[in-house]
Amino acid sequence: MASGGKVVVVTGASGGVGRAVARRFAERGDRVALLARGEKGLAAAADDVRAVGGVPLVLPVDVADAEAVDAAAARTEEELGPIDVWINDAFTSVFAPVTEIGAAEFRRVTEVCYLGYVHGTKAALDRMLPRDRGAIVQVGSALAYRGIPLQAAYSAAKHAIQGFHEALRCELLHDGSGVATTMVQLPAVNTPQFDWVRSRLPRRAQPVPPIYQPEVAATAVVHAADHPRRREYWVGGSTVLTLLGDRVAPGLLDRYLARTGYDAQQTGERRRRDRPSNLWEPVDGADGRDHGAHGRFDADAARTSPQLWASRHRGALTAGAAAAAAAGAAVLARRR
């Protein structure tokens, strides 16, 4: 059994935010169990963890399989020790209007993006509750509060995670448990997902600005794991606006997104018909390649977030969030 640092489990660790999160924990000397489907991405993530002083454990798993997730948790404890932190971040999606997403596709996104979180959380609770200690972090999204066009399946899954998180948090508080859960609500992040999720859009998919680097998200997730008693953390101005915008101007975001949401999520380039899709199989599998943490939007992505600072410092949060929401609402009102 390995020794030194905390034992951390990260789902979706082969790429994007999960990859950056694993590296950030490893920089502290933690032991990191890496859960994902893609072999190439997992191997590269393990190299990242070793390179910065952490201890990796590669566990190929599809989080939609509850038994497999529980088995991965058991192996983590056998090889690394008792789990201190569990990060749920596994992801897949379909970019398309509701009328162009099949029932099986809706089910698959739900199984990974929502039920995968449930499976991970229950595997963690089964081990943490008897010890009366541990932290569970749900990596959420602005879409947990505000659905957007062309991302119905993903928006619905994030809404479901939010409800699950709130219910679980209340139960843990009722029991006076030493186990805590928190949620990190992310804005648009520069990850490879925009080139590997299933897409039926006519043009190449892109995140809705403002865009942040995955390391910003990773900093928030690690901080949340260290301070899991907070209900949630916000990262990025768009997240704050999403949370408060409809309260400032009810219904305004619906009309605004109806007009702008399609173009805002696509570049001017035509979508390649032969682009990969990770809905059913990983694009970084045995026949694929490692895609890393970053996507193709490095030139446009911010490396810092004032809103994250405000979220981590309670005194500044209320004023900062209110100011951001008011400013955002004013901008949207001018564009009506």
Rank of each mutant, 00 (worst) to 15 (best):
I161A: 02
Q213Y: 04
A74Y: 10
G178P: 13
A258H: 10
H165Q: 10
A258G: 14
T191I: 08
L129T: 13
S155N: 03
G120L: 04
G268D: 15
G140M: 04
A218C: 12
R247A: 03
D195P: 03
R229V: 12
G320A: 14
D89F: 07
G288A: 02
A324S: 14
V21A: 03
A324P: 00
G16Y: 11
G81L: 08
V9I: 13
V208T: 06
L252P: 09
V10Y: 00
A33N: 00
P250W: 01
T260K: 10
M128Q: 07
Q307D: 00
F106N: 12
R75G: 06
A68E: 08
A330M: 08
P149H: 02
D195G: 13
V10H: 00
F106A: 06
G285I: 06
F91L: 11
D300V: 02
A326R: 00
M1A: 08
R31M: 05
W86T: 01
G116Q: 05
P250R: 00
V61K: 03
N190D: 15
V197G: 10
F106R: 13
I211H: 04
T181H: 10
A319H: 15
S277V: 09
P60Q: 02
R296D: 13
A13T: 09
Q185I: 11
R259N: 07
T304M: 07
L317N: 06
V137P: 04
L143T: 07
Y233T: 13
W196R: 09
D226K: 10
R127E: 07
F95S: 05
G102W: 05
R336V: 04
G292Q: 15
P97C: 12
H165G: 05
P306I: 13
A319Y: 10
S93L: 10
A142S: 10
S3K: 13
L201G: 00
E39W: 01
M128D: 06
G328E: 02
R273C: 13
I101W: 11
V179Y: 12
A217Q: 11
R75Y: 07
G120D: 14
R108W: 09
R335I: 01
Q151P: 08
Q266M: 08
A217N: 04
V98E: 14
V331R: 09
K158S: 00
L253T: 04
E281I: 07
R275H: 15
S3R: 14
Y212M: 05
E215T: 15
